[in-house]
Design a protein around this nucleic acid. Structure first.
Lengths: 198, 198
DNA sequence: GAAAACGACTAACGAATGTTAGTATATTAC
DNA sequence: GTAATATACTAACATTCGTTAGTCGTTTTC
């Protein structure tokens, strides 16, 4: 069998991980076998192990690549000079765009991280918790400055993050509105729900 | 081994399904084995088959029990005399309450339905689509009457349904606010995001 | 052009999977 | 009390699982 094509998407390992993301998104991590993945890649199952060390490693790569990207983004936003609403808006726009353009990996990271094993599982959970606390803190600040209505900040975070993950349905939809329009609609509903009524 | 206790939760089959919902929620359908479930129930794996015909049947029971409940509820709400905002609010309150009080089953139905097999899979997907269209229609009506701001109704539905499913995180949270408070916060953010600004 | 590295293959492993068959015991119905 | 039903058990089945070992051709390196 010919070798894995690697001209476009980086290394052969990258190709495997990319195909795995698609597969895991579609069937879930546990229901996806290494033989399924091999077929997707166009190779025998055993050959995959020339590039990766285990099925679990693939999930780790996907999850932490996504987590790191989000973590460094929120840090940049939070350190920039904007008011709280604008920070939340920027964070949400990033979520929507990532969900639209890197759907498979972001989705897998969001839904399949439970199948990570320690110490990666604990590590991921910590990052996730930290990220949410950071968002909640931005909202708290906004409440104190009167920009944001008085609500439970963790609840607001929870709503916004899960709302964005609903873009999964948008991807599956037949007649979908454009990505830009989706982004504007999402932001309009979520941000207006936050803003203090005055 | 002693028989499955069935005094409290209905038939023995009900006990199995209830334990399965907890297990599927925690580990996912595919990663939960019949031997896992058997241990949870306190019985050997083969014994489960005196009460259910397959692993798949358990998932079917969970999914359709939940789907039917939501479907009949939205029908009742939609046929009642309220304005559109009040209808959406009633639907969302039901979602929040179900997610709080019947967490395991609602969660499993929402996240694991992909593992249903035809014809149940198609059936479930149809019900899901119908439900969302019904919600979207309520919102469309609200827009036409000026109660609701001009947004893409399917997007609004998608946001609200996924936002509610975020209650999963609330369940896992250590220091959680009360269920009533959670409900009020959710409604405040989501409904205010819908209402027309006038 | 020889040596080294890469990456595909076949074959097989032990473990785990959902499920069935057959049997024994406890509960229920008459 | 006896017959029938319900429900537990042990043992085993055919598959599928992730993964390893060993081999051989191809590509890269110098």
């Amino acid at each position: 069998m010919s070798k894995i094509k690697s001209n476009k998407n980086g290394t052969r390992k990258d190709v495997i991980i990319s195909k795995a993301a698609r597969l895991f998104r579609e069937k879930g991590y546990s229901a996806s076998s290494m033989r399924d993945l091999a077929e997707e890649v166009g190779v025998e199952a055993a050959s995959l192990y020339n590039h990766i060390s285990s099925k679990s490693e693939i999930l780790q790569e996907i999850c932490f690549k996504v987590a790191n990207k989000f973590m460094s983004h929120i840090e940049a936003i939070d350190n920039s000079p904007r008011d709280s609403i604008a920070k939340i808006e920027a964070v949400l726009r990033f979520h929507v765009q990532q969900m639209i353009h890197h759907y498979e990996e972001v989705y897998v990271s969001d839904r399949e991280w439970k199948h990570l094993v320690d110490p990666y599982l604990s590590n991921y959970q910590n990052q996730r918790r930290t990220y949410r606390q950071r968002m909640a803190q931005i909202i708290e600040n906004g409440i104190q400055k009167g920009e944001i209505k008085i609500i439970d900040a963790p609840t607001a975070v929870l709503i916004m993050l899960h709302a964005v993950s609903g873009i999964e349905s948008w991807h599956r939809s037949k007649k979908k509105i454009s990505g830009e329009l989706l982004e504007e609609n999402m932001l309009m509903i979520l941000i207006d729900g936050l803003r203090s009524n005055k």
